[in-house]
Design a protein around this nucleic acid. Structure first.
Length: 426
RNA sequence: GGAGGAAUGGCCGAGUGGUUGAAGGCGGCGGUCUUGAAAACCGUUAGGGGGGCAACUCUCUCGUAGGUUCGAAUCCUACUUCCUCCGCCA
């Protein structure tokens, strides 16, 4: 959510920045509504002042035993007028908020301008694609032939876009979670958190998922609970409504959670394999930062996520998303994309963003700065990493000509020293 | 699931219809005293919104949302959360 006073006072700038995302956001209507709202507010507060004065008078007169019925009926009339103005205010606020809540964040000045992913800018690359002297399989064929992935039974249990990992496959997933958390907590200074896997609507509003993107979420029927689409939701809302001590910033949290997404609107996309699932595991990194250093924090957050890929030896690149390709709440986003031999291209495995004060304003997360003033924090988050996509990238990149898969050395301590995944019985 | 109890400022805690945005204490901050510190003493210390260049000023907020009243922290209703007991349960 943008600051409506900022929008009013910097209308041309806001219009220009939002324009780079492509889209029309009714800024003139917003400003007009705001002007009307402030006018009505002023009038209703003036009436309240009159009412407060008169009521106090009545109290005094009554103590002296005087008759106050004339004054009482006058105040009654004022109260009625206040009530009707309040109704108007409520209506205006609702319209105002509907508009305000649907406007995305302003892209940072360093973000490449463009309307779709073709304008994204590659920032750097690490490693190189593996060389195969044979025709490499994709992770589905590999997983099924090794007996560690069962898509058919997952479909029987739940449906499409679910997976069942078995034996060493399940073990590898668990090892990855464990490994990633260890890297971030031991080496990068994040505090581990195990949050609820459901969150209420206020939390989803705070991160910007609601009200605009309800169709992407699974809601628990008859309740205010939603299955979290990412640990960003519970982690960012950790400090919902709080005022932090500025000296404690930045604060860094890491959490493993499953993530649940309806994937409405992605029918036909990535239907094969584990790339796009209704449920997947992710280790998420979240930071609460001082605005003065939040862009440095974005750089280090991205490096923290990259470190995991480097440790397991997977080829990747970092891409700065362009204005039109960024998410609703983000001011700047780096995607980390891992190399997938079966697709002969890079695929997203992490997304690292600085939301500046956009989420903090929605979730009311502030800090007291060095001068004692309250300020909104900047929130950041990034996947560190998507576990399912790491799992499948390892299978594809480490497959051998004999159909087995080598386990990257960094993971072996988490797999009882196992060096290679060989076919196992169901 | 059943029966009770509770929710007030950073914390504890008073307050059952009229200068109570809120006593008192603790904590924090500033000062006096001291070689320094402690103690003592004095002062100060909630958040949101509007208007104003500013000084400043108005308004809202005592879990949340409504209601009664000239006037609500205080009375009524619903909801939320927490605590105690009973039942059930990993």
């Amino acid at each position: 959510m943008l600051d409506k006073n900022f929008v009013r006072e910097n209308l041309d700038f806001v219009r220009e920045r939002l324009g780079t995302r492509g889209g029309d956001y009714s800024l003139d209507e917003l400003v007009a509504l705001d002007a009307e709202w402030r006018q009505v507010l002023l009038r209703s507060e003036e009436l309240r002042r009159q009412r407060n004065e008169a009521s106090e008078q009545i109290g005094k007169l009554k103590k002296e035993g005087q008759d106050t019925s004339a004054q009482q009926s006058r105040v009654k009339a004022i109260s009625n007028e206040i009530k009707s103005l309040e109704e108007t205010l409520r209506r205006l606020e609702e319209k105002l908020n509907t508009l305000l809540h649907s406007i995305p964040n302003l892209p940072h000045e360093s973000v490449p301008v463009g309307l779709d992913e073709s304008a994204n800018a590659e920032v750097r690359r690490w490693g190189s694609p593996p060389y195969f002297s044979f025709h490499p399989m994709d992770h589905v064929d590999l997983g099924v032939s090794l007996g560690i992935l069962d898509i058919d039974r997952a479909a029987k249990i739940a449906g499409a876009r679910f997976a069942l990992l078995c034996g060493t496959g399940a073990r590898l997933e668990r090892a990855l979670i464990h490994f990633m958390l260890d890297v971030h907590t031991h080496e990068h200074g994040y505090r581990e958190v195990l949050p609820p896997f459901m969150a209420n609507s206020a939390s989803l509003f705070g991160t910007g998922n609601l009200p605009k993107f309800a169709q992407d979420l699974f809601r628990v029927e008859g309740t205010d609970y939603y299955l979290i689409p990412t640990a960003e939701v519970p982690l960012t809302n950790l400090y919902n409504g709080e005022i932090l001590d500025g000296a404690t910033l930045p604060q860094k949290f890491a959490a493993y959670t499953p993530c649940f997404r309806s994937e409405a609107g992605s029918y036909g996309k990535d239907t094969r394999g584990l790339i796009r699932q209704h449920q997947f595991n992710k280790v998420e990194l979240v930071k609460f930062a001082d605005p003065a250093t939040s862009y440095d924090e974005l750089e280090s957050l991205t490096r923290d996520a990259e470190a995991v890929l480097q440790r397991v030896g997977l080829h990747y690149r970092v891409v700065a998303l362009c204005t039109g390709d960024m998410g609703f709440s983000s001011a700047k986003t780096y995607d980390i994309e891992v190399w997938l031999p079966s697709q002969n291209r890079f695929r997203e495995i992490s997304s690292c963003s600085n939301f500046e004060a956009f989420q903090a304003r929605r979730a009311n997360i502030r800090f007291r700065n060095a001068t004692g003033k309250k300020q909104f924090v900047h929130t950041l988050n990034g996947s560190g990493l998507a576990v399912g996509r790491t799992w499948l990238a390892i299978l594809e990149n480490y497959q051998q000509g004999d159909g087995t898969v080598l386990i990257p050395e960094a993971l072996r301590p988490y797999m009882d020293g196992l060096e290679r995944i060989a076919p196992e019985g169901s």
